[in-house]
Each structure stands twice: as structure tokens, then as C-alpha cells.
Simulated assay, not measured.
Amino acid sequence: MALAIITMIIGLAVLVWSADLFIDGASAIAVKFNMPSFLIGVLILGLGTSAPEMVVSALSAYAGSPGLALGNAYGSNIMNIALVLGVTAFISPIFIRGAVVKQDMLLLLAMTALAAWQLVDGTLSRFDGIVLSLALLIVLMIQIVLALRQPAANAPVATANGIDSTKAIFSLIIGLAVLILSSRAIVWGAVQLATLWGISELLIGLTIVAIGTSLPELVASIVAARRGEHEMALGNIIGSNLFNTLGVVGLAAIIHPLAVEPEILSRDFLAMAIITGLLFVLAVIAYNRSGYLGKGGGAVLIASFIGYTGWLISSAL
């Protein structure tokens, strides 16, 4: 028990440190190359924090476990919006640009609809996987073009003088690697404690492990928002969900065609679609009112996370 507690404490401290290093590197690259913060959030933070999900789903598909492969991707999307963005907005209000609502979130909704259309027949073929992967490439190209068309609206305001590109890239890579490893250490410690306290493996998987896999996105988004990098925090979530919906599921289907279990479509994907739509509605309201997604919107998202978790546990018992 002592080892588990020590591991969790050290893991948490390292997690916060690595998130700072990761955001430092991302911000420096944005300034050095005059890239919009939102684009950095979508491409670098989104892809980087989705790397664990991609590996888990790919290995699950290869091992013939479609439920784990799909549940990992869609569950992560739910966590990203309901838990990660909810907690981030509750702690530090997130600025919402009109372009994000009218373009980026609509893209996310469209890709969610594409994924739903592919799932309704109960299977994901290799062709479906190729379509999803190609859709990801197209979406990323659209994101890049849209972001670069509006440099004045979201470009970093700092100067690039004195920024060491090598150091920035090093901070980004090391920060991401340690961020992921430290989150895994926290999950390991939590699982060990839960096991010692007699909590069932099912509840551990549905709660501790599920939340633990979202720690990189959670800490990175909170750090970014508290530093005023609101667009980087929001871009992280939108980018991560796009990578999960298209890239993670697409790669898994290419590796091995997936049978879609009924509960994935009727529960997990449905919940993901509803929460994605809820985010869009909250963002529109925030944009038309104060321009910030704050405590009220964050509380609604957190409540949806609690509701989904309760639904998940009750349906699994």
C-alpha cells in the first residue's frame, strides 16, 4: 500500500511538472513559427495526447477485441469533453471564438455523423477504416487552412526573439512522454489501492482507469487555460476527439475489421454524440453571451460526465 501511495504522489507531482514543460514547448513553437495557438492545440496537443488511445485500440483490434478498441476511443471522447473540458472551464473560463463554433465544432459534429453512419450496419470494415483515415487527413488540411487564414485573430502575441527551436521541441517531446508515463503511474497506484480495498475490477476499469487515461488531456488543458492559452486548451480537446473518432478507430479497423457490439452503439457512441452536441450548444450560448465558457457550462459538462458514469456502471453490473 505504501508503494502505491508513494507512486501516486510522485506521479501527480511529475504529471504537473511535465504538463508545464509540454505547454512551454508548444507555446514556444507557436511563437517561433508564428502558428495559431488553436492549430498547435489541434495538431500537436491533440495528436500527442491521443497517442495512448491509438496504441491501445490498435493492439486491441489486433488481438480481436473490438469492444475494447471502440470503447477506448469513444469513451476517451466522452471524458475529453465532459470531464476534461468541463473541469477546465470550471477552473478557468475558456474564450470561445466565432470561427471555432462555426467551423471547427461543425467539423467535429460532421465527423461524428460520419462515424455513426459507418456503425449502423454493425461492422467496421477495412474500407471503413480507410475512409475514416482519409477523412482525418482532409479534416487536418481544412483545420490548417482555416487557422492560417486568420492569423490576426489567434496568433501568439509574444515575440520569437531569443526562442531556441531545439529547446522548444525537446521540451515538447520530453514533456509529452513524461506526461503519459506519469499518468500511467498514477493509474497503477490507484488500481493497486482499489484492489487492496476490495473494489471490483469492473468498477476499477469503469472509473479509475477511464479517468486516468484522460489525465494527460486534463492537466495539459488546465495548464494551457490558466496561462491564457484558451484556444490551445480547446484545440487540444477538438483535435484529440477528431483523432480518436477518425484516426484511432480508422487504424483499428484497418488492422482488423471490427464487429460493433449493440451496447457500443446504443450507449457509448450515443452518449458521445449527445455530449458532443451539448458542447456545441454550450459554445454557441457562451459565444453569444460573454464570449467565455465558464463555471456554468463547465458544471453542465461535469454533470453529464457524472450521469454517463452512473449509466455505464448500472448497465455493466
Rank of each mutant, 00 (worst) to 15 (best):
L3P: 00
L3M: 12
I5K: 07
T7Y: 00
A13I: 15
V14E: 03
L15C: 00
S27Q: 14
F33T: 03
M35W: 13
L39K: 07
T49Y: 03
E53P: 07
V55F: 10
L59N: 12
A61V: 11
A61I: 09
S65D: 12
V84H: 04
L85C: 10
L85F: 13
V87F: 11
T88Q: 01
A89E: 07
F90R: 02
I94C: 07
F95V: 13
I96Y: 03
K102Q: 13
D104K: 05
M105V: 04
Q118G: 15
D121Y: 04
G122C: 06
S125Q: 04
R126K: 14
F127H: 01
D128F: 06
D128L: 07
L132T: 02
L134A: 15
L134T: 11
L136F: 14
Q143A: 14
Q143L: 14
A153E: 15
A155M: 13
P156M: 11
V157D: 13
V157W: 05
A158C: 02
N161D: 15
S165W: 07
S165G: 06
T166V: 13
A168N: 05
I169T: 13
F170R: 13
I174R: 01
L176M: 13
V178N: 01
V178W: 04
V191G: 00
Q192C: 00
Q192A: 08
Q192K: 11
L193F: 07
L193P: 00
S200Q: 04
L202P: 00
L206Y: 01
T207N: 00
I211G: 01
S214R: 00
P216F: 02
S221K: 04
V223S: 05
R226I: 12
R226Y: 05
R226V: 12
R226L: 14
R226K: 15
M232A: 11
A233L: 12
N236R: 02
G239F: 05
F243C: 09
A253C: 10
A253Y: 07
A253Q: 07
A253H: 06
I255Y: 12
H256Y: 14
V260Y: 09
L265F: 14
S266V: 06
S266C: 02
M272N: 07
I274R: 08
L278N: 08
I285A: 14
Y287A: 14
Y287T: 10
L293W: 08
G298N: 08
A299N: 05
L301W: 05
L301I: 06
A303P: 04
F305W: 08
L317R: 10
